[in-house]
Design a protein around this nucleic acid. Structure first.
Lengths: 132, 132
DNA sequence: TCTAATTACTACTAAAAAGTAGTATTTGAA
DNA sequence: TTCAAATACTACTTTTTAGTAGTAATTAGA
């Protein structure tokens, strides 16, 4: 399965923030720890902040952190990074549903459901585990 | 879920060819019927032919058709269209497996398995159904 | 053998995604 | 109050993907 570079960066960043809930993480740290180009990272972070996916503190000793009360799903991340292209139809038909099906509707249904159920709709904080 | 434009074109083309097994389909027909830019389509078709995913007949009254004996999976199409980027790790880690897991390994496992099992490894001809 | 309709090939342009550069703004602490 | 270290902003460059243009090669049939 293919996810965009930006989405992959986003997932890595959120996992890192989730493991460092105390205090703030600077862009410099994130860039070095996660091997993401600094300038590209700061651009993403600003976008996340604007969309209230994370919290930022400006000025010296500033940085980024998760918002405790906020529930984030992978679906939210996909929507933000890849645009709202997380459509349900695999060949991108606008009208593709139970009544009017594309050629792949039935074949794609099960995996799609699984993704939605097990992954996209689950709180990120809950599904992130320790690396091993 | 997001699939590249090229992948979506490919899926549509193969579904159409599967519904028109008798005789050949010309690039012109495919382009018009499936609303795919003609020149872009011919480029893709040549690539498919070279990779022996379909068969082509040149010259007047020529065109394209499926190879009866050939089993094609969505995985094959992804590999051909999006490069060999259909990696198993959602954040693209080279070393991510049962022994060494990324943060999302467990969360991604079930949907990934479902995709592989129900979709990617299944013969395309079998999973394509009629539009409705 | 000539022609028209087709695929194959080569090279280009346009748009989108990824990455870079420089500067402005913010802010805690010396 | 000044400074250094951080985020925010604006604009650019590079790379990849999508799409276009023109021509060559192929081939069935008149």
């Amino acid at each position: 399965m293919v996810f965009s570079t930006t989405t992959q960066y986003a997932l890595k960043i959120l996992a890192y923030l989730n493991e460092h809930k105390e205090g703030l993480c600077s862009a410099k740290t994130l860039s070095e720890e996660l091997d993401i180009p600094y300038k590209y990272l700061t651009k993403i972070m600003t976008k996340f902040t604007k969309n209230e996916m994370i919290e930022s503190v400006q000025g010296r000793y500033g940085g980024f952190k998760l918002i405790d009360s906020k529930i984030i799903t992978i679906y939210d991340i996909l929507k933000l990074c890849d645009g709202d292209s997380a459509k349900d139809c695999i060949i991108g038909k606008i009208e593709c549903n139970e009544r009017k099906r594309c050629h792949y509707h039935d074949a794609w249904q099960k995996p799609r459901e699984s993704i939605k159920k097990d992954f996209l709709d689950a709180d990120l904080k809950g599904c992130i585990s320790k690396e091993s």
